[in-house]
Amino acid sequence: MNEGATNAPRPESRVKRRGRPGRASSGAWLYLLPAVAVYVGFLVYPAVSTLQFSFLEWDGIAPPEWGGLDNFVQAVTDPLLAEAIGNGLLLIVFFTLIPIAVGLAMTALLIGRVQRGTTFYRVVFFLPQVLPLVAVGTTWRWVYSDEGMINQFLGLVGLEGLARPWLGDEQFALAALGLIGTWTMSGLCMMLFMSGAQKVDTSLHEAAAIDGAGPVRQFLSVTLPGVRKEISIAGVITTIAALASFDLVFVTTNGGPAGATNVPALLVYRLAFNEGDIGAASALAVVLTVLVIALVSAIRYLAREDS
């Protein structure tokens, strides 16, 4: 596919355009080839295949038949999907909004005067990101269980009345699940914001301090604008994690109780691997992708620099 590009630069044009940025030469394409091959092989090809499967009636083995838009009609009319998307949107609160707020608060506390122990806190808060979500999910299932740590704590402080099997309670399961997301995502947000805040020129802080700005004012007027890009990136990553969440839900509640924590990716998984309906699963995955792209674009638009 890069043949046209390698043949493209002719000697005259090479002389004419020498040194201009953004121009491709045959050598550059050769260097890009490994990365392009991996990208096309493992990202573009599966994505294109998914799109293509979404138009087929196919169980993954038997000969596929053309299904047109049937799978999409089935996907968007499935009452479970609307519920699952609703749950995914609610998870954004726990995966994105709260972690960004927590991340900013941590950044405000750790940046500037507190030098000692910063690395320690950074490691501790980032640790959840490093742990595999399957292990995290299993552990949290015990923490939330009827006799788990949270209920034991509630009992110790005399709040037995509030104790409940959190993940087994239809009203609280989604929020309980979301808080696991908060726990894992806050560290990531903090890491991003810290690196952004460290780029801010210290003279800006000094100037603000001379002008009489306290720590809060400094944070709002100097640090916060400085990490605007990082907030946008954190928003994008965590929103995708919320809407496309799968592993965490799969091991903690598997969509239960009674579908209260169904998320779109779980429905995709069930269609593909339990029911063997590759077409419908792919159509659902395409719908989910469109939704994610729409939301992420909205975040990027809201957080753009030049408004």
């Binding site: 299932r141 269980s145 009827d146 409940r164 099997p165 993940l167 087994g168 509640t253 239960g256 109780p257």
Partner: peptide, 9 residues
């Protein structure tokens, strides 16, 4: 049945 059986493996 145990309380919260829906979240017990």
């Amino acid at each position: 049945l145990p309380e919260g059986t829906s979240a017990v493996s």
